[in-house]
């Protein structure tokens, strides 16, 4: 039995240990003479500085009646059209040299880290949806009566689980992606969905098989066909049992999504790599990236726990 005073002692001790760990990180930074520059990181997350728009060629500024700015190059070629700006710097007819600031955009914009985070969320979300679809279909095939279905499902699951995700990403991108002319993003989502779908299929199969056979029999004896019995009786119970392992699998999915940076998708990890070389603040960047992954995975865990609580009403 845990007494209340014991519990508080435990919490206190935990805080002390955590403080020691954080201090440890801080002092190890000092030991290697690392100067922390958290402020350098900020513009890469959200950029509040006005953005300069730079002339790309030497030429003449032209401001049309509707206010659109363009640069007509001196030596021919297509004019540089500025689609959107807040403040003009160049005036109509000005002589412009390459590299001049011709206009500014004010207000804030997302920096590369925020954009990378968004890409990671997008890829993970789409892959999650498709992996659930794949997982349910192949999970159902795995327990189907037809031997063909079962064989097909086993083949899929074994091939995917037996090969590394990184290799699968390359195969999807370079082989399937070339055959079907997929862009990077689609290829990334496809690879992650196919990979995670195999694990989801096994989880779904386990969930279905954990529902006592009497449930199917009761449903069938009430006149339901196989599909109705699955949909209204077996699956609702199976899903409840699969939620905890599914949560783990989807958290893995979010983390695995960092591997798509190998096919040049600028997700959170790739953005981190790029920002490190621009900001010279590697520790801050990687700690931030890790924290952001933690926020996304934590959010998903929380959402699934909520769902579990709601489904627990009948226990």
């Amino acid at each position: 039995m845990q007494t209340p005073s014991n519990r508080w002692l435990g919490h206190g001790l935990y805080l002390v240990i955590m403080a020691a760990l954080i201090a440890g990180i801080y002092f190890s930074g000092q030991k290697i003479n690392y100067t922390w520059h958290w402020e350098r990181l900020w513009p890469y997350v959200i950029n509040t500085e006005p953005q300069d728009i730079i002339a790309q060629t030497d030429g003449t500024a032209v401001v049309s009646a509707s206010g659109q700015l363009s640069i007509t190059p001196d030596y021919g070629g297509a004019p540089q059209v500025v689609p959107d700006y807040d403040k003009l710097v160049a005036r109509d007819g000005d002589l412009i040299f390459q590299g001049d600031t011709i206009a500014r955009i004010e207000g804030w914009r997302f920096g590369p880290i925020a954009e990378g985070l968004w890409v990671t969320i997008e890829i993970s979300f789409l892959s999650l949806i498709f992996s659930i679809l794949l997982g349910v279909v192949f999970g159902l095939m795995r327990v189907a009566h037809g031997q063909v279905w079962r064989n097909l499902a086993v083949t899929y699951v074994e091939i995917i689980r037996g090969t590394p995700l990184l290799v699968q990403i390359f195969i999807v991108y370079f082989f399937i992606g070339t055959v079907f002319d997929l862009d990077r993003f689609t290829a990334g989502v496809a690879a992650l969905s196919i990979f995670t779908g195999a694990y989801v299929a096994e989880i779904v199969r386990g969930g279905i098989q954990s529902v006592p056979p009497g449930q199917m029999e009761a449903a069938r004896s009430l006149g339901m066909n196989y599909a109705q019995a699955m949909a209204y009786v077996v699956m609702p119970q199976a899903i409840k049992r699969t939620l905890p392992p599914l949560a783990g699998q989807f958290i893995n999915l979010i983390k695995d999504s960092s591997l798509v940076s190998v096919i040049s998708i600028t997700d959170l990890t790739k953005a981190g790599r790029e920002v490190v070389s621009g900001s010279f603040a590697p520790f801050e960047v990687w700690f931030t990236v890790a924290a952001l992954y933690l926020v996304v995975t934590g959010g998903l865990s929380w959402a699934i726990q909520r769902l579990e609580k709601r489904l627990a009403a009948s226990d």
Partner: peptide
């Protein structure tokens, strides 16, 4: 067969109620 099963109900030793329904 599904139609026929509608016409013959079955009550089981282990009840087999659907636990997710009231």
């Amino acid at each position: 067969i599904n139609k026929l099963r509608e016409e013959v109900g079955m009550v089981f030793q282990s009840f087999n109620l659907f636990p997710h329904k009231t």
